Amino acid sequence: MDSFKHINSDNPNSLSLRVFKEIEDMILNGEIQPGENLIESKLSSQLGVSRTPVREAVRMLERTGLVQIVPNKGAVVLGIDDQDLEDIYTIRMLIEGLASRWAAERMTEEQIRELGEIIDLQEFYTMKNSTEHINHLDSQFHEKIFEYCNSRPLQHTLSDLHHMIKRYRKISVGSTGRADKAIAEHRQIFEALAEHNPDTAEKLTIEHIANAKENLLKIIREKRN
């Protein structure tokens, strides 16, 4: 955990939140592994803050389910397990399809143009094999649909789910052949959105997430064998 950055803030509530986000990112990126203990004194020293915001951040992490407070052992990292991944992708299939349906009904011509530009950039950087750009644009494509569905509750829910599995989405998109397939699927979804066809947009989005789920679980199984 040597990569922690020192955090400065005069607002105690803001400081606790920033400490929370820093530790959460480390857990979700796999830099802090499941089973590891979060030691207040060590985190306090590494972050350059007092133990109070660290303690509050750990409580916040417990409420998210990423950390469990165990008697006589302290805060133990749970992280994201296989069942969590299965559940998150299944939930995404249900509600991200709805986001695409609503986006198809509500998108403006300007929003269609913006989404088309993202697809064009995805195809360009895939030809260049630029993994960093591919991952960024993949996230941006989905986030724009969340925004364009024009539902704040749905947008916030999906953004939280994507944040939880960002490490795994990078693994999936970065696997051999998946980027090309994902972008082809994005292109089909985009065309349905541009045609304001909610049924097709929803159907294609569900299929896209199902394919991503199958690809990711296959990678995980292969790594363990």
Results as ranks from 00 to 15, higher is better:
Ser14Val: 08
Ser50Leu: 02
Ser44Gly: 11
Asn215Val: 13
Tyr168Thr: 06
Val67Arg: 02
Leu121Asp: 13
Gly97Phe: 01
Asp25Lys: 14
Glu143Tyr: 13
His162Val: 02
Glu191Trp: 02
Glu62Ser: 10
Asp82Glu: 12
Met1Gly: 13
Val173Tyr: 02
Glu114Cys: 06
Asn150Tyr: 13
His142Met: 00
Thr52His: 11
Pro198Ala: 07
Lys213His: 14
Ala103Lys: 08
Glu109Asn: 12
Leu94Glu: 13
Gln188Ile: 07
His163Pro: 00
Asp25His: 10
Tyr148Phe: 15
Asn215Asp: 15
Asn225Tyr: 09
His162Leu: 12
Pro198Glu: 08
Glu31Pro: 04
Ser3Gln: 12
Arg187Asn: 08
Ala194Pro: 08
Lys218Thr: 15
Ile112Leu: 05
Ile7Gln: 06
Gly30Asp: 05
Val173Thr: 09
Pro53Ala: 03
Ala201Met: 15
Arg178His: 13
Ser175Glu: 07
Leu161Ala: 04
Ile118Ala: 07
Thr126Asp: 12
Pro34Phe: 06
Ser159Asn: 12
Arg152Cys: 01
Ile145Val: 15
Gln111Thr: 07
Leu15Cys: 03
Ile39Glu: 11
Gly116Lys: 02
Gly116Leu: 04
Val77Asn: 01
Cys149Ala: 11
Ile189Glu: 04
Pro53Thr: 05
Glu114Gly: 06
Arg63Gln: 14
Asp180His: 10
Thr176Met: 12
Thr157Val: 09
Ser100Lys: 09
Gly97Gln: 03
Ser9Ala: 09
Phe4Ile: 08
Asn8Glu: 10
Gln46Met: 13
His136Ile: 09
Arg55Cys: 01
His133Ile: 08
Asp160Ile: 08
Ala201Thr: 11
Ala99Asn: 05
Glu22Leu: 02
Arg106Trp: 03
Leu17Tyr: 10
Cys149Phe: 06
Gly116Tyr: 02
Lys170Phe: 13
Asn129His: 10
Ile134Gln: 10
Lys128Ser: 00
Arg106Glu: 14
Ala57Gly: 05
Ser3Phe: 12
Glu202Val: 00
Glu132Ser: 10
Phe20Ser: 01
Asn72Pro: 00
His6Phe: 12
Gly35Arg: 06
Met60Gln: 10
His162Glu: 13
Ala182Asn: 03
Asp138Gln: 03
Ile91Trp: 02
Ala184Tyr: 07
Ile95Val: 14
Arg59Leu: 10
Gly74Lys: 01
Ile80Arg: 00
Ala75Ser: 11
Ile95Gln: 00
Ala75Asn: 09
Met1His: 07
Thr126Lys: 11
Ile183Asp: 00
Ala212Cys: 08
His163Asp: 09
Val67Gly: 02
Glu222Ala: 12
Met93Asn: 11
Arg221Phe: 11
Ala201Tyr: 10
